[in-house]
Nucleic acid binder design. Structure first.
Length: 835
RNA sequence: GCGGGCGUGGCGGAAUUUGGUAUACGCGCCAGGUUUAGGUCCUGGUGGGCUUCGGCCCGUGGGGGUUCGAGUCCCUCCGCCCGCACCA
């Protein structure tokens, strides 16, 4: 009997899978395509290759691989590809520090990831491998950019943008967290710059509505996206500044409070501010205020607790509902990026407006009376945000505010002073970056084609793609892209008129690269198109997507947007890319997030070396429910290692003994007991997979089976029929553990049964053997457990009751009391209610 | 403030779908066995209190309720975690 040697068996099976290309699948119409099977696209988020894989990667791919293996054996043709999100800042920052070109560090890291994924035994279709930094890939990223540009979904515009001074680039709204750069934590600054945007706002409504098309996404991810998109219903009302002949539309969710507007506030970034105060006494003070706000960090400005500040403009606007002139202010609590950058202030019914009114001693006019008699109706009850009866609102007085809401909106529309409106918090996606290590934006600027002195934006024709990233010497950004220094590259000729022209030097946000990689996998070697339509139609959508919750908004929303835009462009047939989403929890060490600076990182390679990949993989699946996080424990890893070694030894013992043919129906006694346990485990593991990701309990069930086999094996080895039962149990355990520990599962199965376990259909429990002859009858008196009795499984209710009453232990509690009720749950429990 | 999640042994967790044996499985700990230098390996035990050793009582964050029966359902309070937040 040989000892469990993971190194040897893992190398053996990895060789088999590589040589036989076991996990490769063919597209429809290609040789090897298994058209008779339903398809299943199992996908884990592609890694960003930096350094070595960490335990988060191990968990993600171990979880995804278990699903892939289960689905294959459940009869699906499973596509399970892998690639690298290989453009991005860490490689570039490393280049700035060390001078090593980002490509070299990135490709070295890819090599390490690729090697370790093979050493982990992940069942990847390597024929589809891709890396987003290769011209073969980003050529098509650029092609998609051009498609969006042609449809007006990619545009260049000057806008207030978030600038990270440390990374020296602009950021998307989604990349700013608490006023800081998501990557490096530096407080961001506001700048007004001309940048490239994708018009994701055009899809806001569909991004919300199509949550209905998803099969299963975690509720909190949907909620986070919903909140991010931030749909509000309300009305737009136009406030007019007669002196300057200017209309100021405002968005409000409370048109019913229009009569309570007592002042009007503009955001400090409002474009008309300059015109309103130029040459007036307010000019200097307003300018000082605006400058001060501009210097503030987003974090400071966002603090709700600090007192309201602002400056009167000395101008007024007219309230469209009552013709009243109300004073204008500039104040930093109004944000340019939400609504129209201007608000009507209703201090009686809005907390922030109320605070401002108190600070500036402005009138507060109640226009809704609360209907709750316990709430004060005077000034004391303000601000009052709730519903009630209209007051001080002319002919709307006395109505409920909800009814008045509709009437006021209708009246505004009739008068041409406003209309019903929907507003979104979502901003367009800023995609240009002043950085080197990304896909060049495929446009040139041509003076000759331009008008009014402004150069024309000329897209690079698709047949001239890719616009290749040039080699540069200096990677550090200097406020503009390092590409600008590649003069020979920048200077080009206009594809339209042939005149000298200059290339765009910004690159694309790396989230653009990862917004479509799951489509490229389906046809990753195609040199003539981004993908073959038939292949995409066959495999999409992704049936199971797996990754970290940190991508709940950014990547997952961008990919949804891309899918919809590409469907509109006629390139795809699906509206949603990921039918089912699973977000795995984070693994911590000593209760803390792992980081190099804390020195508490876990290197998967180290554990794979010491215990084998099967142990490392099974452990991360056994730690707890995979959607939750968990703390890494070396003792826990050893426990899983012990279990796998126990299964191995069980297999070896059986191989050394002569087993008879299994005659399950004839089995009795302990053989029957063990077979029942095996079928129980088969049933349990199958249900755990089908219910979702209950891997911890699935593995526990296999452990129970192995424990039961150990308990009974020595008695069963006495005869060939008993040995056959042990053999069945061992083979079942190998088969069930295969999705988690594929090398061990394959090896034990081969030794016991011969052949490849992954070619064997997922086992089905035999209902005959699942049920045992007897059940443990629980007997309660007044709901308290008093006895357990072995009872025939098919005993009738009357028989169970009789058994329960005969129990000595039960008798003690019935003594002298009257049974007033008898509850019988067949096959389970009897409860005698006494008085 | 808004939205989401969670609270069970010394620890990770199971049972929450369908109300019906609370603590499966693993770790840790205790005891025994094999070997014996240790480790490995095998077996048993392991929520708390009381015990006449038959058992009895208590126990799933606190309180209340529904029910023959509640970790599970309802109400309420407390605590922790995550996301968003001056969003008009």
């Amino acid at each position: 009997m040989s000892a469990y040697d993971p190194k040897e068996i893992e190398a053996k099976w990895q060789r088999v899978w590589a040589e036989e290309k076991t996990w490769e699948v063919a597209n429809p119409g290609k040789p090897g395509h298994e058209g008779e099977k339903p398809k299943s696209y199992v996908l884990e988020m592609l890694p960003y290759p930096s350094g070595e894989p960490h335990v988060g990667h191990l968990k993600c791919y171990a979880v995804g691989d278990a699903i892939a293996h289960f689905r294959r054996r459940a009869g699906f043709e499973v596509i399970h590809p892998m690639g690298y999100d290989s453009f991005g800042l860490p490689a570039e920052n490393n280049a700035i520090k060390t001078g090593e070109p980002p490509r070299e560090a990135t490709e070295r890291s890819i090599e390490s990831f690729r090697r370790q994924f093979r050493e982990w035994g992940i069942s990847i279709d390597w024929s589809r491998e891709l890396a987003t930094h290769t011209p073969e890939y980003y050529r098509w990223t650029q092609w998609i950019f051009l498609q969006l540009f042609e449809r007006g979904l990619a545009y260049r515009d000057e806008a207030p943008v978030q600038w990270c001074p440390k990374d020296a680039t602009v950021l998307a709204n989604e990349q700013v967290v608490d006023g800081r750069c998501e990557r490096c934590g530096t407080p961001v600054q506001q700048r007004r710059l001309e940048q490239w945007f994708f018009k994701i706002t055009e899809y806001a409504e569909r991004l919300l509505a199509d949550f209905d098309l998803l099969e299963s996404w975690p509720e909190h991810v949907v909620t986070m996206q919903r909140n991010w998109i931030g749909r509000s219903e309300g009305a737009e009302a136009i406030f007019r500044c007669a002196e300057l002949d200017l209309d100021f539309p405002v968005f409000t969710t409370r048109p019913d409070t229009l009569f309570g507007a007592t002042f009007f506030v503009l955001a400090p970034e409002h474009p008309e501010l300059e015109r309103l105060v130029a040459g007036t006494p307010a000019e200097e003070e307003v300018r000082e205020y605006v400058d001060r706000v501009a210097r503030e960090s987003a974090e400071e400005r966002g603090d709700e607790d600090r007192p309201k500040t602002g400056v009167p403009l000395g101008r007024s606007v007219v309230n469209p509902v009552n013709g009243e002139e109300i004073p204008m202010f500039v104040a930093d609590y109004v944000l340019m990026e939400y609504g129209t950058g201007a608000i009507m202030a209703v201090p009686a019914h809005d907390t922030r407006d109320y605070e401002f009114a108190k600070a500036f001693d402005l009138p507060v006019r109640r226009v809704i009376e609360g209907t709750d008699p316990d709430v004060a109706h005077d000034e004391e009850g303000l601000p009052y945000p709730g519903d009630g009866t209209m007051t001080g609102s002319g002919r709307f007085d006395g109505r409920g505010n909800r009814a008045a809401y509709e009437e006021i909106v209708a009246w505004l529309a009739e008068e041409g002073r406003g209309e019903a409106a929907v507003n979104y918090r979502l901003r367009d996606w800023l995609v240009s970056r002043q950085r080197y290590w990304g896909a060049p934006i495929p446009v040139v600027y041509c003076e000759a084609c331009g008008e009014d002195g402004a150069p024309a934006i000329v897209p690079v024709p698709a047949e001239q793609l890719p616009v290749e990233l040039p080699e540069v010497d200096e990677y550090a950004p200097q406020g503009k892209s390092p590409l600008a220094a590649a003069e020979e590259w920048v200077a080009t000729e206009c594809p339209r008129c042939g005149a000298p022209a200059r290339r765009e030097t910004d690159t694309m946000d790396t989230f653009v690269d990862s917004s479509w990689y799951f489509i490229r996998y389906l046809d990753s070697r195609n040199e003539g198109a981004a993908w073959d339509r038939a292949a995409a139609d066959h495999w999409l959508p992704v049936d199971q997507y797996i990754g970290g919750v940190e991508h709940a908004i950014l990547h997952l929303m961008y990919a949804r947007f891309f899918t919809k835009a590409l469907a509109d462009l006629g390139e795809l047939s699906v509206q949603e890319p990921f039918a089912n989403l699973f977000t795995q929890g984070m693994i911590t060490r000593d209760g803390a997030k792992m980081s190099k600076s804390k020195g508490n990182t876990v290197s998967p390679a180290e554990y794979v070396e010491r215990y084998g990949a099967d142990t490392a993989r099974t452990y991360v699946c056994f730690m707890g429910p995979p959607e939750r996080g968990g703390d890494w424990s070396d003792e826990g890893v050893e426990g899983v290692g012990r279990f796998l070694a126990r299964l191995w030894r069980l297999g070896e013992e059986v191989v050394e003994r002569q087993a008879g043919a299994l005659d399950a129906p004839a089995a009795g006694g302990e053989a029957r007991e063990l077979l029942a346990k095996a079928h129980w485990a088969i049933d349990k593991v199958g249900r755990d997979f089908e219910r979702g990701f209950q891997f911890n309990t699935a593995i526990a069930a296999v452990m129970e089976l192995v424990n039961e086999a150990y308990r009974l094996k020595d008695g069963l080895y006495a005869d060939p029929a008993g040995t056959a039962a042990v053999r069945f149990a061992a083979a079942a355990a190998a088969s069930l553990i295969f999705p988690f520990a594929p090398h061990l599962g394959a090896e034990v199965w081969e030794r016991l049964e011969g052949g490849r376990v992954w070619e064997v259909p997922w086992p089905q429990a035999d209902p005959e053997l699942l049920a045992s002859d007897t059940v443990t009858l629980v007997v309660q008196v007044n709901g308290k457990l008093r006895d357990r009795i072995e009872a025939p499984a098919e005993a009738s209710e009357a028989e169970l009751l009789a058994l329960a009453r005969e129990s000595e232990k039960v008798h003690r509690h019935l003594d002298g009391k009257e049974i007033v009720k008898e509850v019988v749950v067949p096959g389970k429990l009897v409860n005698l209610v006494v008085r």
